Simulated scan of single mutants.
Amino acid sequence: MPLSRIQLPGERSRAQELYEFLRNAILDGTLEPNERLVEENIAALASVSRTPVREALRKLEADNLVRDTGQGIVVGTTSPEELEELCAVRETLEGMASRLAARLRSELEVASLRRILEEYREATQQRDVERLVVLNHAFHETIWQAARNRYLFRELTNLRDLIERLQKTTLDRPERQQAALPEHEALFEAIVRQDEDEAERLARQHFREAMAIRLMMARLAQKRL
């Protein structure tokens, strides 16, 4: 979908704000795979010179969100093979985050996870997919925060965004809705007990279950092309 006027807040550098705007547009599907991104057009829409546009596009290329075809910059695509690679990295980091969270979590974070789980149970009963997605993000982000490692948090956020760009969620599948709740509950209990080994094992297992569905969906979608 072509962009209309780009409004930048003007609170940080133009290149950074433009990067964030374009990144969000790619991740939410406003900019579609293989859509061309022309420096001159973006500069005109954002009322900036081409220099910050060029810098923003370089950062997006480093994030694997755009690619240079030799004839211009286009929005990148994610193949099932690339998705599998992303999932392998994320599984390891999810396990690491849960291990650290079990060791370092505060009582406030335990209370936050408990509250999120209560709401998650209710949303599961109501089959409220939109709410489940929000709560699922909140649950995992609370664990990442409890790990006390800003670089780990940043990498997990980036990996999640890249993976969900291909498929927003697996929670629209009833069988995944029912399976995810006890998986979350078991992981929560391991973190409460500060059982680091079990927290890591459960986090990796939980992620593998969800990713198996993602990979199956991606391969089916590829076959339809």
Score class of each variant (00 low, 15 high):
78 T>Q: 04
71 Q>F: 15
67 R>G: 04
93 L>H: 01
53 V>R: 01
129 V>R: 03
94 E>Y: 03
54 R>K: 15
80 P>K: 05
76 G>R: 07
84 E>T: 12
72 G>L: 10
119 E>T: 00
87 C>R: 12
90 R>C: 07
80 P>L: 09
122 E>D: 09
91 E>P: 09
115 R>H: 13
82 E>K: 14
62 A>Y: 06
69 T>P: 06
58 R>W: 08
109 E>G: 12
74 V>C: 10
96 M>A: 13
60 L>E: 02
119 E>G: 03
92 T>W: 09
113 L>F: 00
97 A>L: 07
109 E>P: 11
54 R>Q: 11
108 L>C: 12
122 E>M: 09
55 E>N: 14
83 L>H: 02
63 D>N: 10
99 R>V: 07
120 Y>T: 00
63 D>M: 08
68 D>K: 12
82 E>Y: 06
104 L>H: 11
90 R>A: 08
125 Q>P: 07
83 L>W: 01
95 G>I: 06
117 L>Q: 00
84 E>S: 15
81 E>P: 06
75 V>C: 06
116 I>F: 00
71 Q>H: 15
106 S>M: 11
57 L>H: 01
110 V>H: 12
97 A>Y: 01
71 Q>D: 14
121 R>N: 03
69 T>L: 05
81 E>H: 11
71 Q>Y: 13
56 A>K: 00
79 S>M: 07
102 A>S: 10
126 Q>L: 13
56 A>P: 04
56 A>H: 01
99 R>I: 07
77 T>V: 15
71 Q>I: 12
53 V>D: 00
98 S>Q: 05
83 L>Y: 02
53 V>M: 01
66 V>I: 08
100 L>T: 06
67 R>H: 06
111 A>N: 14
84 E>G: 12
100 L>M: 11
92 T>R: 13
64 N>A: 15
61 E>K: 13
60 L>D: 00
99 R>G: 08
62 A>D: 14
124 T>Y: 01
129 V>F: 00
95 G>D: 00
115 R>I: 08
98 S>N: 05
122 E>P: 03
113 L>K: 01
83 L>C: 09
114 R>D: 06
128 D>V: 09
76 G>I: 05
77 T>E: 15
64 N>S: 15
84 E>L: 13
97 A>S: 11
93 L>P: 05
82 E>P: 10
91 E>G: 12
79 S>V: 07
88 A>I: 12
88 A>G: 11
57 L>F: 02
72 G>T: 04
84 E>M: 13
87 C>M: 15
53 V>E: 00
126 Q>S: 12
121 R>I: 01
105 R>V: 15
118 E>H: 09
104 L>W: 07
114 R>N: 13
58 R>I: 13
101 A>E: 03
108 L>A: 15
107 E>D: 14
75 V>M: 08
77 T>P: 11
57 L>N: 02
80 P>M: 07
129 V>M: 04
110 V>Y: 08
74 V>L: 11
103 R>P: 09
108 L>I: 14
61 E>Y: 03
77 T>I: 15
96 M>R: 13
95 G>C: 05
96 M>V: 14
66 V>P: 04
94 E>R: 06
64 N>P: 08
70 G>L: 08
93 L>R: 01
97 A>H: 01
93 L>A: 05
102 A>M: 09
97 A>C: 10
112 S>V: 14
80 P>N: 07
98 S>L: 07
100 L>A: 11
60 L>C: 05
88 A>E: 08
101 A>H: 02
104 L>G: 07
70 G>P: 03
116 I>V: 10
100 L>I: 09
69 T>Q: 03
